[in-house]
């Protein structure tokens, strides 16, 4: 699907708008990108400030084992021929999210231990299931690296549903999530139901990951969840502003990924994550450069004054 090397410039975007109006798969890609670009940084911000960004990675790897289990079912049992392996992927990551919270309680002083336990368990099971099936007819790489242009009509419904649910939960429990993220102990003493909110949040993270896999892939999901947040934290003051800015950065990354997939036939997930890294570097580098210029400017003025 090579259409020349326009990238995401203005001329290219007018061609892309035509394509979006013409083709269903482009409309689905656009909607999926829009939804994922909102919900990923939304949960990402809470994960990053709680120093739990790697949980996204762990749950994504568990999703792989769920997807593999689904594909195995599909292959072995005729009754499951139409079964969507994303459903078993989601069930696996939802279950794992509850375990993460439980494991964090077990190892209170080594809370990050939950992550390698879940991550390696997930990928181990996934690999075993794939080998047990002796290969699949579908492309497992699509799940690993994402393909935004291949979002099917049934998947787009699920992505929109997940998006609505995630936004609703984050907005409804914004206060509690903020208080728990900032200072879990004080929030608990203020009567905020810590355990149930944490479990609910874990479920939401699992939902975001499953919904994002089509767009960025299992291996890159955590990039879209954390990188836009990391960039926004360099710039914004305040939690809400950081949230809006990270959504903006995520949207830019997703649309560049969509454009690259469409014009250059590049992997959407890879492009999305690379653009996110680029934004992070530009924002972080630019901020430091401006600070240095200002500081040297002040130095000159001070010298002039003396």
């Amino acid at each position: 699907m090579k259409k020349g090397g326009e990238g995401c410039g203005p001329a290219a975007s007018s061609v892309m708008i035509d394509m979006i109006l013409t083709y269903d798969f482009m409309q689905r890609a656009l909607i999926a990108g829009l939804v994922i670009g909102i919900i990923s940084p939304m949960v990402g911000l809470f994960l990053v400030v709680r120093r739990l960004s790697l949980i996204a990675d762990a749950l994504a790897h568990v999703t792989l084992s769920g997807v593999a289990a689904g594909l195995l079912l599909q292959k072995q049992f005729p009754a499951f021929q139409t079964f969507n392996p994303m459903i078993s992927g989601m069930m696996f990551s939802l279950t794992a999210s509850v375990f993460v919270e439980r494991l964090r309680q077990w190892y209170r002083s080594y809370q990050e231990l939950a992550i390698p336990v879940i991550l390696s368990g997930g990928i181990g099971l996934g690999v075993v299931l794939i080998s047990a099936a002796d290969g699949f007819s579908v492309d497992v790489a699509g799940y690993l690296f994402g393909s935004i242009l291949a979002v099917s009509p049934s998947e787009i419904g699920a992505i929109i549903g997940a998006g609505v649910l995630v936004v609703a939960v984050i907005l409804l429990f914004y206060k509690e999530l903020f208080a728990l993220s900032f200072d879990e102990e004080s929030a608990m003493f203020a009567g905020i139901p810590r355990r149930s909110i944490n479990i609910l949040f874990g479920l939401v993270v699992a939902l975001v990951i499953t919904a994002s896999i089509r767009v960025v892939g299992i291996l890159l999901v955590s990039g879209l969840i954390t990188l836009p947040v990391a960039a926004a934290m360099q710039l914004a003051s305040g939690f809400k502003k950081t949230l809006f800015l990270s959504i903006l950065f995520a949207q830019v990354s997703v649309f560049c990924g969509l454009a690259a997939a469409f014009y250059l036939d590049w992997a959407s997930g890879g492009t999305i994550v690379l653009v996110s890294v680029l934004i992070l570097l530009v924002v972080g580098g630019g901020k430091r450069l401006i600070r240095r210029v200002l500081r040297s400017g002040n130095g000159v003025r001070r010298r002039d004054a003396s």
């Binding site: 400030v49 903020f178 993220s181 900032f182 200072d183 929030a187």
Partner: peptide, 23 residues
Amino acid sequence: FNQAFPATLREVVASGLYGKLGL
């Protein structure tokens, strides 16, 4: 606490009301 937490003083102080306000 996490010194890099991206919240303003006003947002942090407001969080003291969240338990009282309730779900």
